[in-house]
């Protein structure tokens, strides 16, 4: 099957040669796919604006050895509102960057795809705070990758909470016995903020107490466990 159909989200694009681009896609059935879109930078390209970041697309791809080739694209949703507001755009970039980090090439992950799509929908659709939506996405992404923070029981010994200190390296709240040097005492609203981000249902976008500290913890937590800095995070207006 040299030609295959997929739906995906455009994560990022990179210039290639004179008029082409390499497009990185997060697909539903094939994980991360890198594909060449030929001639896409020419004004008369038949791809037009269909392969811009944030766009949810239906694709027909030709399987190559390293890079695939995009043969047809149709837009499912352009998530236009994300492009038209700076805060939503910056938060959206956080979503794309983190999804790009976690996704594995040609490894199917429907849950990752749905999580990323949900985050883009929340950013484009509602009037939720973009920075909070990005936080929620990051924490859920960490959970999906196996790093769900423990927010009541001690992350090390399991002793029931509440505990006052949060340890990034130990994976959540820790009791006084288990805490190591890196554990920090967190403010009153912080744990409810984090717990709210992980609650079932659509990503919350309401600003709330504990957000300042909570947001910083989310970033440090995700960067530690993914072992990479998140470059877009600092550019989100808060």
């Amino acid at each position: 099957m040299a030609l295959y159909k997929e739906q995906g989200i455009v994560l990022r694009t990179m210039r290639l040669g004179e008029a082409d681009r390499i497009v990185t896609l997060l697909t539903q059935g094939s994980g991360k796919v890198r594909a060449v879109a030929k001639g896409v930078r020419k004004t008369k390209s038949r791809f037009g604006g269909r392969l811009e970041p944030f766009t949810h697309v239906d694709l027909l791809l030709y399987r190559g050895r390293e890079l695939d080739i995009v043969t047809q694209v149709e837009i499912i949703t352009s998530h236009r509102a994300i492009r038209e507001d700076y805060a939503r755009f910056a938060a959206g970039e956080v979503v794309l960057e983190a999804a790009d980090r976690v996704a594995q090439e040609r490894e199917r992950s429907v849950r990752l795809f749905m999580l990323a799509l949900g985050a883009l929908r929340a950013l484009a659709g509602g009037d939720g705070d973009p920075a909070v939506i990005a936080d929620g996405f990051l924490l859920r992404l960490a959970s999906l990758a196996g790093f769900r923070p423990s927010l009541s029981a001690c992350a090390a010994c399991g002793r029931p909470g509440p505990h006052a200190r949060f340890s990034i390296s130990q994976g959540g709240l820790v009791c006084e016995k288990c805490r190591t040097g890196g554990a920090v005492r967190v403010g009153e609203g912080t744990v409810p903020y984090l717990a709210g981000l992980l609650q079932e249902g659509p990503l919350p976008g309401a600003p709330r107490e504990g957000r300042r500290e909570g947001s910083g913890l989310v970033r440090a937590y995700v960067e530690y466990h993914f072992d990479r800095p998140l470059r877009a995070w600092a550019h989100v207006p808060r």
């Binding site: 004004t43 008369k44 791809f47 037009g48 269909r50 811009e52 766009t55 837009i75 352009s78």
Partner: peptide
């Protein structure tokens, strides 16, 4: 739409 282009092939954003 670029001059000399074709509406049929225009994407919905453009």
């Amino acid at each position: 739409i670029p001059v000399g282009g074709d509406l049929e092939y225009a994407d919905e954003v453009t």
